[in-house]
Design a protein around this nucleic acid. Structure first.
Lengths: 131, 131
DNA sequence: TTGATATATTCTCGTATAGGAATATACTTA
DNA sequence: TAAGTATATTCCTATACGAGAATATATCAA
């Protein structure tokens, strides 16, 4: 079996960095035509059109015609599955932040105890594996 | 140029659904050996080992040996770039929630106005494109 | 109509899969 | 040492890219 198509889902679509750049540009709010994207990305027009085609197929962007131009806009709803999935791991880095904070507070308390002249702070040596 | 390697970054690594399943299993906290993952995923042992190899190369999982088994654990920090990127779009769905709420409130007010006998509510026909 | 501009599509090529099958490697136990 | 278990690696094949080049299609301007 080969690798899944980039158009199979949003996770595959955004695996390509140029496509994430396109999404980032469109996230700034305004609609943009292909030429604008070409200029900003420094890629060839066919390359940009092909990337837009992938994003279109998974629904991450939408187009409408305006004369001879095509105006692309972001359709952020389609990014939500990525958000929902990665959200499940948020606790890991918030927990980490929390424990960094805790460690800092322990250190402050310890220092305060030392300042008061206590020479034998109760064992706080555990959970200090600094990476 | 071919598609980027699945080991080139975390976005490519998690594009594959089975690898996301592995990450989900490891996120439940405990370390797991390969056999456990094989049983839970219903894939062949070589397939699982190969997916683990990809996740290892991008740093999303870490291993250590325990006898003849290899215990895998999640290394959630490496998922953070995905979180950070997708976070930039969170405003879109929170804004959307906000506007749904607003619309609901407008509707309530309108109904209240009708209940009071007002038969000509001021033009509220715009921004009502329901998909 | 003719030429110019904007965008999409097709073709080609090198490359990287994902999974199955077979095999290699490392460790354990008798 | 030999057999058994756990895991990784190699070989194979069908498939799908991503970019460049060339071309097709649609619209505008004169």
């Amino acid at each position: 079996m080969a690798r899944a198509a980039t158009t199979s889902d949003v996770f595959n679509a955004i695996a390509e960095p140029r496509r994430r750049e396109i999404v980032d540009l469109l996230a700034r709010g305004a609609e943009r035509d292909v030429t604008e994207l070409v200029l900003r990305l420094g890629l060839s027009q066919p390359t940009v059109s092909k990337h837009l085609g992938v994003l279109r197929k998974v629904g991450v962007v939408a187009v409408h015609k305006a004369g001879q131009r095509r105006l692309y806009r972001l359709n952020p709803e389609e990014l939500k599955p990525v958000h929902d999935w990665i959200q499940n791991f948020e606790r890991f880095w918030t927990d980490q932040l929390a424990s960094i904070k805790e460690a800092a507070e322990r250190k402050v308390k310890q220092r305060a105890a030392q300042d008061r002249g206590a020479s034998n702070p109760q064992s706080i040596s555990k959970e200090q594996s600094h990476g």
